[in-house]
Amino acid sequence: MSTIDKNAVRHVALLSRLSLDDKELDLYSGQLASILAYISKLNELDTKDVQPTSHAIDSLKNVFRRDIKKASLPVADVLANAPSKESDFFKVPQVIEGK
């Protein structure tokens, strides 16, 4: 079981595009470590004979949708919560490939 230390939190924060200062790093690494410690109680269970599963309902498989069109949202609704927009686009800070 890997542990959560300050470096791990710094790395995950970077992946999540979050900027955390030293105080926050201390705070969250402490909190996350205690959550993981709590969850790790599950490791005490003997799962030797239990098949791994990726889903809570093991018996449910092959749930499909027919390839039939449904109405999309009106563009006004799509953009209703956008902090910034331009014509029918979402407007975001400049992203250029390579940066």
Partner: peptide, 18 residues
């Protein structure tokens, strides 16, 4: 006709976010 996980049209060249 539709996208992978929802019923929106899978079509190229429509107006943005429609």
């Amino acid at each position: 006709q539709t996208k992978a996980f929802c019923g929106c049209a899978n079509r190229f060249g429509s107006s943005p976010n429609s």
